[in-house]
């Protein structure tokens, strides 16, 4: 069981509506504790990515209407200025997007992209920068030699690219990492590798992860808790065990029923220990 901290790391309570359309997120309430891995599951169009963008303040405020509050580390993100938000993005809240090959700039070398992400929040000597980049790459089990740094995204495998993205996200040791369908585009083996990487990073750095996915099965492997998003609202939220063993919402039940037939869902702790070894 998790929860019970007095003050959560992130506490979301928002409604988001694009001009003249029904709301995308309706009174969405979700909390994330420090060091926790929360899965947010919902089908396409349920508003998952909108939530990620809202938290990062990347929605175009001219085109949509946001109500409510997003409390992060004691301040309401919705009240922050663009400048303040910018200082948070990439430094304390990081994002990893779905398709690594389109999320990396095809025209830039790996080193340049990582350097840019580093320089956005740090000023230091080039040598220092390079050191941090190498260490981040090592953290995601990627080679950190000059040959690799000189590569362009198109010269890497999808898995490598995703690891680069993750390396970029953890450069500044953020308190919160938002993974938006971060493994959906990967083959099963790579997917499980990346999932273990997330878990490992969570364990070793205490970084909380908001893991957004349409795929309940992949979420099950790494999450402490799971929130089910349906038509812009959280319909059920509980520990992974609870959700799998005893889903009470109709939609959750459907999701579970739709999973490939598995005799029993292993408890999260088992997977945890497996990946740790």
């Amino acid at each position: 069981m998790t929860g019970a901290h007095v003050e959560p790391l992130l506490s979301v309570d928002v409604s988001v509506r694009y001009a003249d359309k029904p709301p995308v997120l309706r009174d969405l309430k979700v909390e994330l504790q420090r060091g926790e891995v929360l899965g947010l599951v919902g089908q396409s169009g349920s508003g998952k990515s909108t939530l990620a963008m809202t938290i990062l303040g990347l929605l175009d405020k001219k085109q949509c209407h946001i109500e409510g509050a997003i409390n992060f580390q004691g301040s309401d993100l919705l009240q922050l200025s663009e400048r303040q938000l910018r200082a948070l993005r990439g430094r304390t809240i990081a994002l990893v997007l779905q398709s690594p090959l389109s999320a990396l700039n095809p025209a830039l070398k790996i080193r340049t992209q990582l350097k840019e992400a580093w320089r956005a929040h740090a000023s230091g000597s080039p040598a220092d920068c390079l050191l941090k980049i190498r260490s981040a790459l090592q953290n995601v089990s990627l080679p950190s030699d000059d040959g690799f740094l000189r590569k362009y995204p198109s010269q890497m495998s999808v898995g490598q690219a995703q690891r680069v993205l993750i390396a970029m996200a953890i450069l500044h040791r953020p308190g919160l990492l938002i993974a938006d369908e971060a493994t959906s585009a990967l083959d099963v083996i790579t997917q499980s590798e990346i999932l273990s990487l997330f878990r490992e990073l969570n364990r070793s750095t205490g970084m909380a992860i908001l893991y957004i996915s349409h795929d309940l099965a992949s979420v099950a492997g790494i999450c402490d808790r799971i929130a089910i998003l349906h038509q812009g609202a959280i319909v059920e939220c509980g520990t992974t065990q609870q959700i799998f063993d005893n889903p009470y919402h109709e939609y959750t039940q459907k999701l579970i029923a739709a999973l490939p037939r598995i005799r029993s869902v292993p408890p999260a702790s088992k997977i945890l220990s497996a990946s740790a070894t």
Partner: peptide
């Protein structure tokens, strides 16, 4: 995506 990713990294 990559511009969004870059913005999310705080580049502006």
């Amino acid at each position: 995506d990559f511009v969004r990713q870059a913005r999310a990294a705080g580049i502006h």
